[in-house]
Computed example of a mutant assay.
Amino acid sequence: MSPIKKQNSGKDDNKKSNFIKSNLSFLRGEHNKTLDEMSELLGLSGKSSYRAYENGDALPSIHILMKLASFYDVSLDELVRFDLSKKEKTNAKTINEPEVPVVPIKARAGYVSGFQDDHFIDNLKTIKIPYKPYGITRAFQIDGDSMEPEVNDGAYVVGIKIDQNELQSGKNYIVVTDDGDIVYKMVVENQNSLNLISRNPKYPAKEVDKEKIKEMWKYYCHLNKT
């Protein structure tokens, strides 16, 4: 997705765009995110695209602005019209520690059969994560050492729900299959199947037909069990 080049349409637009660029730079710093991380989050072609927003060389589309407002937990109006660097940080802890439903190892069997049941999801316990991601999020507890040293046994991996057509081959995902498996792996896409690859070399790759995939969750962050 390419940024929209800014057009000089008047003083009011320039003033608003100045708030957008300064707010984006300020908020990214507050959340300790790199240009690469924000570009990946937004589906941009590279960090230069996001840098263009911060430099005021391009204006984000309304779709991108909505994503950014959701991620930074501010209103669209605040993001565009106000200098957020001057906003009092009274609710920083609440903003930075949203809660997401967590599927522990012992609840996996129930999840595979009940993941479409709102009552089941509502009764899952929650965990706090550092920042609010954009989209539907869920945490899954990892069973085993197949992704060590990257993610330890018992860690909680937080994922953002995606459709299969949003898959980026070579990235890490939580994959839920119709035979009851919930695995966290690096995924390589084939025409009709997915290769699920462990980081730990002692585990061989596993091939799964695409039609057997029930859910996919793109890696967002993980919390090691303490």
Rank of each mutant, 00 (worst) to 15 (best):
I197Q: 11
E166R: 08
M216Y: 10
V80N: 03
H119A: 10
V183N: 01
I174H: 00
L35Y: 10
V80K: 01
F115Y: 15
K33R: 11
G46C: 06
D77N: 13
D83F: 10
S85G: 12
D143G: 05
M1E: 12
L124C: 05
S49N: 12
D77M: 11
R199C: 08
L44V: 05
L41F: 13
F71P: 04
R108D: 03
A109I: 09
K6E: 02
E215P: 05
L196S: 06
I62T: 13
C221E: 11
I62V: 15
K202Q: 14
F19H: 10
I142W: 04
A52M: 09
S9I: 15
D36N: 07
G159K: 02
K185A: 07
M38K: 02
K185V: 05
L24S: 00
Q141Y: 07
P149W: 11
G180M: 06
T34L: 04
K225I: 13
I142V: 15
K132L: 10
D118V: 11
S113N: 08
P60Q: 02
S75V: 09
V208R: 01
K128Y: 06
I4P: 00
P204R: 07
K202G: 05
E40Y: 03
S198L: 13
N91Q: 12
A109M: 12
V157M: 01
P104E: 06
A205H: 09
F26N: 00
G46A: 04
S75L: 09
L24D: 00
D122G: 03
P3K: 00
R138V: 09
H222S: 10
